[in-house]
Design a protein around this nucleic acid. Structure first.
Lengths: 156, 156
DNA sequence: TCTCTACATGCAAATGATTTGCAGCAACAT
DNA sequence: ATGTTGCTGCAAATCATTTGCATGTAGAGA
């Protein structure tokens, strides 16, 4: 048999494609946390939020779960040029592109993707087969533009 | 007095804007290495190449120099989603955009920038002031497409 | 429901990249 | 030349992430 068995119906529908993935309580909470976050989270962020419901959860478990989900394609990982940590979010949500505020470090999703086929086919002409791409805009959000330092400390 | 003094004329012209930056032999070599590399280098790469001329050079010096140059805007740092290390290159050279091969991990520069004003002004409408952006295409280069694994080990 | 086995977890130690403290050294203004 | 200030090497410290290992538990089957 190929299908995952879970108690609850909710997650098994949502993550029914996760064959061989044991839906433990830890993982359910981690998925919940990712699903409820409106923004990509670091492993540490994820732990903090999961700890509300799961005080004992270990950071290594969060990493292992995120890695697992990553390799299954259920989450995406993003690295920013000004931050050594990795950010994770559910692939379903995938805005994929962000505006990253250099003041408050918030990641604001961009819905539309300005990088389309033209780029891919230009690369293709150079013999390069594009499978994926990432675009990040750096700058300052509205909050940080007006009263630029008031937020810099509050959200760092 | 504000201007850097160096013995040689070459570097002082190129990096004359580097006030307070001491043009030591180590740094001259590091800059040379970055200038001659046709591709962004990691700190370790840089050390290896610099070691040819400077056997005793320490990795920490490379990092310190790169950080210094970074904060002065003379080099740019890029992080890739599949590699924990940072890549550096002279800003002057800045192609800024790359195609990164998932097979051989080579970074191929893209000359043109498909992300232009339209994106910035779209962001601007959302109250976001764009100061910079990064675009990376992931995929497979010509070499790796034909005989995909022959290169995977050779260049890893 | 109960048991068994594979897989998940916590903890602590190992990595890998990058940073830092410190004492000695060298570049550059004078 | 010569002192001051800023570089440098070395080793130890961080930071994010990974891994080994002993134990716990989800979920397949009895």
């Amino acid at each position: 048999m190929d299908v995952v068995h879970t108690h609850g119906a909710g997650e098994s529908q949502m993550f029914g494609q996760l064959k061989g993935f044991r839906m433990t309580r830890d993982r359910r909470i981690i998925l919940e946390v990712l699903g409820e976050a409106g923004t990509p989270l670091t492993a540490e962020d994820t732990l903090e939020r999961a700890n509300v419901a799961l005080p004992g959860l270990a950071l290594s478990t969060v990493y292992r779960t995120l890695d697992e989900l990553l390799s299954r394609g259920n989450v995406e990982r993003t690295l920013l040029s000004n931050d050594g940590r990795a950010f994770f979010e559910l692939t379903g949500h995938a805005h994929r592109h962000y505006m990253v505020c250099l003041g408050c470090h918030r990641m604001l999703p961009i819905r539309s993707c300005p990088v389309d086929d033209s780029v891919d086919s230009a690369a293709e002409e150079l013999g390069f087969e594009v499978t994926d791409h990432s675009l990040v805009l750096y700058g300052y959000c509205r909050c940080c533009r007006s009263g630029r330092q008031s937020r810099e400390e509050s959200a760092e």
